[in-house]
């Protein structure tokens, strides 16, 4: 690659050289700095600290509560391996100028700490309608301080499931809630509709919102639970303006599924054998052992006859 360019112009090579030298300096200077520190007597604990990453996400749940999810991890610069860090206390705040403490949560084994906030909580918003959340970690002996932040607009989704002219229809109405409770319908935005599944949400279609409103025909052949219930979810996932926002509802629009008696209770691989097998085996065993017993009885008779002769 470089060689090709060299043939074309020396000019590019020069730029490369400069960049390379600059890179080398950048690479080595901190190293030198550390060495200097090492040399200077005490091994500073601060120099050995890890700088973790704190990522903050927010989800507005179906019941209007809001979850703040902090993901606390550390990436080893050498191995490029990422570790989640558990048992770390994270403090959550909201607001730009005056911070309101929302509480603390401890990270789990996946490095996740979740803070749930009541549905009626009145978040401070700026003039554009953004809510500013921050998550903070105060460093300890091993870990440096870390913080994460996220700005989202509050969004209200209303989900209606109804049969219109015997067509199962999913209708949504989406509005932004800006400062002072001003509601503005969302326009020309695509919204995905899902059904809840065991591991994830299965997309069933997209609604293009016009004046905050849109509809989708629900598929007819989708399996539900034994009663045919499915959870229908309207969702924005990690949207840059709204974060994750979802609204869900349960309805018996699915096909009823039944898997209990899918397997025969008697087969080759079940615990209980097929009837024919038991019958065959019994006949054979009875036949053979019957004869054995007969022979043994005969021998006992023989033995008893001994006394008669004596």
């Amino acid at each position: 690659m470089i060689r090709m360019k060299k043939k074309k112009t020396n000019h590019i090579l020069n730029i490369f050289k400069t960049v390379f030298i600059a890179l080398m300096i950048l690479l080595f200077v901190p190293e030198i700095f550390i060495h200097a520190q090492d040399g200077a007597d005490s091994v500073s604990a601060k120099a050995e600290k890890i700088s973790p990453n704190l990522k903050l996400l927010t989800t507005k749940n179906s019941d209007e509560t809001r979850s703040l999810i902090a993901v606390f991890s550390y990436k080893d610069s050498e191995t490029k391996q990422s570790f989640d860090i558990k048992d770390v206390t994270i403090t959550f705040f909201v607001g730009t100028d005056s911070l309101i403490n929302l509480g603390t949560a401890t990270t789990d084994e996946k490095g996740k700490a979740i803070c749930s906030i009541k549905s009626n909580f009145d978040f401070p918003k700026n003039e554009e309608g953004f809510i500013h959340f921050t998550a903070e970690f105060k460093g300890n002996d091993v870990l440096e301080d870390a913080s994460g932040e996220v700005d989202v607009k509050d969004l209200s989704i209303s989900l209606t499931l109804e049969e219109i002219d015997s067509v199962r229809t999913v209708s949504v109405k989406v509005e932004q809630i800006l400062a002072n409770n001003v509601r503005v319908p969302l326009n020309e935005v695509d919204m995905q509709i899902f059904v809840g599944r065991m591991f994830s949400h299965l997309p069933i279609g997209t609604i293009s919102l016009a004046e905050g409103i849109g509809t989708l025909e629900f598929p007819v052949n989708l399996p539900g639970d034994t009663a045919g219930n499915v959870i229908v979810i309207a969702k924005f996932e990690e949207h840059e303006e709204f974060g994750t926002v979802l609204k869900s509802d349960t309805i018996a629009w699915g096909i009823k599924t039944m898997h209990f008696n899918a397997y025969s209770p008697r087969s080759l691989w079940t615990q209980v054998a097929p009837v024919w097998m038991i019958v065959t085996l019994s006949i054979m065993l009875l036949g053979v052992w019957g004869h054995y017993i007969y022979v043994i009885i005969q021998l006992i008779l023989l033995k008893k006859g001994e006394k008669k002769i004596a």
Partner: peptide, 20 residues
């Protein structure tokens, strides 16, 4: 340490923002 523990730990908050 489950998510559960995390939420209950964060109940101790002054402005009662949590849904518990």
């Amino acid at each position: 340490t489950s998510i559960l523990a995390a939420t209950s730990a964060s109940l101790l908050t002054s402005n009662k923002a949590f849904a518990g």
